[in-house]
């Protein structure tokens, strides 16, 4: 049976991990590879590194951390943030990443999804969708870090992305992000039912129960979270034990 994946997400700026208040028990958290290794040894099934380097000029330098991560860890990892061309895909994959995630650039140029999946295979093209509920009760797609409403319907956009060749969808709920009130279950459920590729929940996790709900109610394939892991509020292996006790298929560390 395929296991549900638990995926910590790390923000990287200019090649360094962006520190929050405190990362638990880890020395030298500035190094993306060190933190990646820590998580891979703590039971993470996959990692996402999100490059939040502001300027395009610095991006190439910033992405040099990818090679180091590939040397240090032996689980799959995805890199996203600022990816806008086939060359970006090529560089990131050649540096050793397994997947590349795209967001705003895919909205502006949907053809990028198609070209990237034809060239590199759909398994490495991850479409990340920032969605926010509107007054009609449906969800709009936002870009530019949640600042700009595109007017696209999130569920339709997910379907279109998969038709174009996206091999995985990450659904970030803008409403729930950082709130720790749980994932946007209705949105996740609708997207899971609409596409035939893995769907990863993102944004809103605060408790063990939130992870369980996302699996049981929305049947997501993986769950992504940042702060609850970074601040040590939830330990990955404890979370996995809890999920297993609740009959969710997970990969427990030996």
């Amino acid at each position: 049976m395929l296991a549900k994946r638990i995926i910590p997400c790390l923000d990287v700026r200019n090649g360094r991990v962006v520190k929050g208040k405190k990362f638990m028990d880890i020395q030298d958290v500035d190094e993306p590879s060190k933190l990646g290794k820590y998580y891979s040894e703590s039971g993470a099934d996959e990692l996402v590194f999100y490059d939040i380097t502001a300027s395009n000029e610095d991006r190439k330098t910033s992405l040099e951390f990818v090679k180091k991560v590939a040397e240090e860890i032996n689980i799959p990892f995805c890199v996203g943030g600022g990816v806008s061309s086939l060359d970006d895909f090529k560089y990131i994959l050649r540096s050793g990443a397994d997947k590349v995630s795209i967001n705003s650039s895919a909205v502006k140029n949907p053809n990028l999804i198609k070209e990237a999946s034809e060239r590199f295979g759909n398994q490495c093209v991850v479409l990340s969708i920032d969605a926010k509920k509107n007054e009609k009760g449906s969800w709009d797609v936002y870009i530019k870090g949640g600042r700009e409403n595109t007017g696209l319907d999130a569920i339709e956009w997910a379907k279109k992305g998969v038709e174009l060749g996206a091999g995985e969808i990450v659904v970030n709920s803008i409403d729930e992000d950082g709130m720790k009130n749980g994932y946007d279950l209705e949105l996740l459920k609708k997207i899971v039912e609409a596409v035939n590729v893995p769907v990863i929940a993102s944004g809103g996790a605060g408790t063990y129960e939130h992870f369980l709900e996302a699996v049981n109610y929305a049947n997501v394939d993986g769950i992504l979270a940042a702060s609850v892991f970074h601040f040590g509020e939830i330990k990955i292996n404890d979370l996995k034990k809890y999920l297993k006790e609740n009959n969710v298929e997970v990969r427990l560390a030996n």
Binding site: L2, A3, R5, I75, Q123, G167, P198, D221, G222
Partner: peptide
């Protein structure tokens, strides 16, 4: 089911072989 078969799945052993020496049945691989 969703294709590609992507993610961690557990191994079921069919017969003994030296390649299985250091792992147990039902361990997960990617």
């Amino acid at each position: 089911l969703k294709i590609p078969h992507m993610g961690w799945n557990n191994l079921k052993f069919v017969k003994e072989d030296p390649i299985l020496k250091y792992i147990n049945e039902d361990e997960y691989v990617y």
